[in-house]
């Protein structure tokens, strides 16, 4: 019993992890016990080998060999006796086992990282695919809402643009169509407000210029004039001039035009 007890402490003794009393007990025992001091020297050798061993990086074929390795390991394991009986079984088996276990650990870790990397690649593709599907779904929902009979629902559709970080041309065109052709003033005005966030688009700019000639609601006219004035769109000057010359243009709309036009030309 005593022997075994000290053998169990040897690895920690070598690593300097024992407290003083344990250390003195082990050292006292080692002087008396040949088998234990022999064990100690064997352990020292083993530790040295471990230190000299270079870290191996697992290669791709590790995965394919994995199951064969497991089979091999199983057969070996059945022959091997547990670590507690090492001293009885002999030193060579003991060190072999330890090395095999170390190899298995390295193998497992390697397979883990290999698998993880593979999985990340796959899930990355899946996420991209899902994002595409969500985008398509949102687009369908938005277009269908904008075709609804109820003005409130069409406005909901127009506001749906907030769900898109980078709306494509189809959506922008559908919004421009609502702005130019919807029978309800609130839908057209909401479309103007929403589109004023996308003045970098040529489609949007051209629709605004077109709306200057077709839109009869003074509230919407003023909003469009302000947006075009802000981005100093030179192409809008002719349409603004046209609106300014119309008899039915409201005086406050003309005022707005007169204040914006000089900055554009």
């Amino acid at each position: 019993m005593e022997k075994n007890h000290v053998i169990e402490l040897l690895p920690e003794y070598l690593d300097g992890l024992l407290n003083k009393t344990q250390k003195t007990t082990v050292e006292a025992h080692l002087k008396d016990c040949n088998s234990c001091s022999h064990e100690l020297s064997e352990l020292k050798k083993l530790f040295k080998v471990f230190k000299e061993e270079k870290e191996t990086t697992p290669s791709g074929n590790l995965k394919t060999n994995f199951f064969e390795q497991i089979e091999l390991e199983k057969q070996n394991n059945s022959k091997v006796v547990s670590l507690d009986n090492v001293s009885v079984q002999g030193k060579n088996n003991w060190t072999n086992n330890l090395l095999k276990i170390a190899a298995s650990v390295v193998l497992l870790v390697g397979v883990y990282f290999f698998g993880k990397q593979q999985q990340e690649q796959i899930s990355g593709k899946e996420i991209a695919h899902l994002a595409d599907e969500t985008q398509a779904f949102k687009q369908t929902a938005m277009l269908s809402l904008m075709g609804n009979k109820s003005a409130s629902k069409r406005i909901q559709g127009v506001n749906f643009i907030e769900e898109f970080s980078d709306p494509d041309e189809a959506i922008v065109s559908a919004l421009a169509d609502r702005m130019l052709n919807d029978e309800n003033t609130n839908v057209r005005r909401t479309a103007v407000e929403v589109l004023s966030e996308f003045t970098a688009s040529e489609t949007v700019k051209n629709s605004f210029i077109k709306a200057l000639k077709t839109e009869k609601d003074p509230g919407i006219q003023i909003t469009i004039i302000q947006v075009l004035g802000k981005i100093q769109e030179k192409k809008a000057a002719a349409s603004m001039q046209y609106l300014l010359e119309q008899d039915d243009t409201q005086p406050y709309v003309k005022e707005e035009l007169e204040s914006v036009l000089p900055n554009i030309i």
């Binding site: 109820s150 409130s152 406005i155 909901q156 506001n159 609130n186 005005r189 509230g219």
Partner: peptide, 9 residues
Amino acid sequence: SPITVYSTN
């Protein structure tokens, strides 16, 4: 669905 109340003057 949304409520919108707009007026010019």
